[in-house]
Structures are given as C-alpha cells and as structure tokens.
Design a protein around this nucleic acid. Structure first.
Lengths: 209, 209
DNA sequence: GCGAAAATACCACTATTTAAGTATTGAAAA
DNA sequence: TTTTCAATACTTAAATAGTGGTATTTTCGC
C-alpha cells in the first residue's frame, strides 16, 4: 500500500499556516510523505494510531495539552515512535523535559527548511538531533539545580503578587517555610530578589503566565 | 506587466516554514500573488520599494527590529501602504501600538487560512480588520492608564532585580522618586507588589525579557 | 536499611519595600 | 494662558522581605 523507503510523517501543530508550510516542504521531498495532521494534543494519539507514521513533528505549545504530554501518551502506546519537537522558542526547562521524556529532536521553527528535512532523515535513521543553538542554551544551565515541585508552587504564588504570609495560608504551611522556599528559589535561579526570580523563571519556562 | 485585479502580497516573517505556508495559501488564490518576501525587518523597506505590493503581511517579532518599526519605516515612505500585522500572540500594548502606528489589521497565526485570505481582501478593499478575539482583549484594558516612558524604564530595572536605591543611581534620580514611580506602576497595573507588576507587564507586552 | 534531598517549622535580626502624605518644576495640551 | 501631567524630592511609619542559624520528618534511590 505504501511505497518502501518513503518516510511517513505526522504533524501536530495548532497553526494551520505552519501546517501548510510543513506539508508543502515535506511533499516536495521525493522520500517523504505527509500522512496525517492534528491540531490539538488530544487528537494526536488517535491520529497516530490510524496513520502509524515513521516520524512525528510535534509543536510544543498546543491549545489543549502540552506537546510533551501528547508525546508521552504516544510513546506509552508506541515506544518506538520517533518524535521531533518543533517550537518557536522555549526555556531550557521545556527542552530538558522534552528530551528526558523521549523526544528524538528539538527544532526551532526559525530554522531553514533544508535543516528540517535533514533532521527528519537523521531521526528516521535512528539518530537523535539537537541543534547547536539549543545545545548551547542547555549547556548554560547544565550544572544548575532544578526547582522542586514545591518550590515551583511557591514561585507561582509569588508571581501572582502574594505575600509570604498569604502563600503560607494557601499552601497550608507557615510563613517561615515559605521564606525558606523563596530563599532557595532565589539561590537556584541566581536572583537578587523575588521579583527577578519570577522574571527569570518566566524566561526559562519554569513557570508561565 | 501585472494582471489587473490581482492582489500583490509581500510577506515579512523570520520563519521560513511560515513563509512557505503563507505562500502556498496565497498562490492558491486566483486573485492573489506573492510578490516578495523578507526575513528581517531591516530588509522590509528595500523589498517593499522593489515590489510595491498591495498588501504587506508583517510578523510582529523579527530577529532584528520590531515589525512595528519596520512598518513605520515603510509607511513613512509609502503612506498608502496597507499592512496587516501577523503574530503568535502578544499583549494588548503591542496591538495598540501597531494599530496606532497605522496597521490595517492584526491577525493571530492560529487563525484558519480562509480567514487570512478574507482579511487580505477586506484590507485591500480599504477596510480595517481586528478579529473579535483581539478586540475583546483590547477592550479589557481600554480605560486603563498607560505607563509613561519613565515608568517603563523603572519597571525594567525592577524586573532585573534592582533595589530602588540602585535604580535611582542608574537613572540618576533619588530613591524616593523611584518609589513614587513604582507606586504609580503598581496602581496602574492593579498589582499588589512590584513582583506582580513585573509579571503583568510581561504578560501584556509592556516590557520584555 | 542508609544516606541524601526535600519539606517542614521556629527564632532573631536587618534590609527593603510600601503607604500616605506634601510640594516644586518644566513641558505639553486645551 | 491656564491647566494638566510627568518627574522630581522629602518625611514618617508600618509592613514585608531577606539572612543565617538549627532541627524534625518524610521520601527516594541505592
């Protein structure tokens, strides 16, 4: 039914125009074929089941669930699925999470089309691929400690303008404990105060608005 | 040289894939034609001069200068240019600035392709177009006061984690004056503290990281 | 089970921010 | 030209945040 040696591609993206662009590019390659499209994370698994693609291009930011979670649900059922994360730009935290969760590549949408098809071929051949641009960003924060789940919870409250006392009440812990968390957060993010901590966390994708 | 009644379109976007998508869409329309492309804001004016398009699609976020500034430089030389701002999503401040600077429309990249071509036709016919989605967002912040240039300067320093005293030294004003500015900023943004002020300003596009 | 890391709590102290006023100056707008 | 707005400066007092300790409990990986 399908020709041999044709790389079957599935694209998940909520931007119809980006879909068009990717499809035009893919279908111009003699060794590639676009076999399915999804616009929402919740449709991705079903579409994957139907089309059984060789390579999946997954947008990180989707209207319903995160592209990473959509990928995880696919990998859960199809452990051999090869997924390339395709995104505008996110902080190092998202990249790390995507790779740790099993992504075979992580590409910026600003890349030249040639590079995209090259990476698709590499990934299809069983390799992993991270562009130097992104690898550099990863390296910058390599030795740095990551925030714990509790610290992120606290940081979100801080970003909402809550006082330490109110954060304590919300999370059912004492104000003193909140202070300790905030101090650890500032230390880990190299922030001089809570305000800069929030700004840095937003830039790095640790929290979102 | 060019057929009559064909809408000549110029696209400025730093995403090659988006370019492809837009071009594919445009060239599929019987009454439209893609006549030029630019990937940087600094190239936009020169390309415009060469191609003299009917409608320009301008990405807000470009690698070098802002899409708004690129549009302004075009409108400066060609006051009748019709520019549609095309973007992922930005805060209300950017939208306001784009429209005030002379944009004929402001579209989200998440829109269906049909809508894009419809808006291009409307704009080409001399109308302005803002989708309800965006109009709503604009309305939300309608009566709210805008920050002065000085307040934005101060706010940027706040976001960088500076103390009021240090901000004063940086901007050559007294710490007391900084306090007044910060107070006004918080009042205008309905923030309970400087931290939330920064978070809100980032979301609304008043400052960027 | 052991050791490490995380979350919790308390104390005491200092630094900083925030509130709520008044007031002067220059520039822009009506 | 008057009026408004923005920026500037000051004071006082209270609230909040940040620092540096110690210590207990739980959870997780080895």
């Amino acid at each position: 039914m399908t020709e041999p040696n044709i790389i079957r591609i599935f694209s998940v993206d909520d931007h119809p125009l980006m879909h068009e662009g990717i499809a035009a590019l893919i279908n111009n390659q003699p060794d590639m074929e676009m076999v399915a499209e999804a616009f929402k994370g919740s449709d991705a698994l079903a579409q994957f089941r139907l089309s059984q693609p060789d390579v999946t291009l997954m947008d990180l930011r989707l209207p319903d669930i995160s592209g990473i979670d959509a990928m995880i649900s696919i990998l859960n059922e199809f452990p051999d699925a090869r997924v390339i994360m395709l995104t505008m730009f996110e902080g190092d935290v998202e990249i790390r999470r995507a790779l740790k969760s099993g992504a075979c590549g992580y590409l910026l949408k600003t890349m030249p089309p040639k590079e995209l098809v090259a990476v698709i071929r590499r990934v299809h051949a069983g390799k992993k691929h991270i562009p130097t641009e992104i690898a550099q960003n990863l390296a910058e924060h390599l030795g740095e400690e990551t925030l714990t789940a509790r610290e992120i919870e606290v940081l979100k409250c801080v970003a909402e303008g809550n006082r330490n006392r109110d954060i304590g009440e919300k999370l059912f812990i004492s104000e003193e404990t909140v202070k300790v968390h905030v101090k650890h957060i500032m230390d880990k993010l190299y922030a001089s105060d809570r305000t800069q901590a929030v700004a840095i966390a937003l830039r790095r994708g640790i929290i979102q608005l």
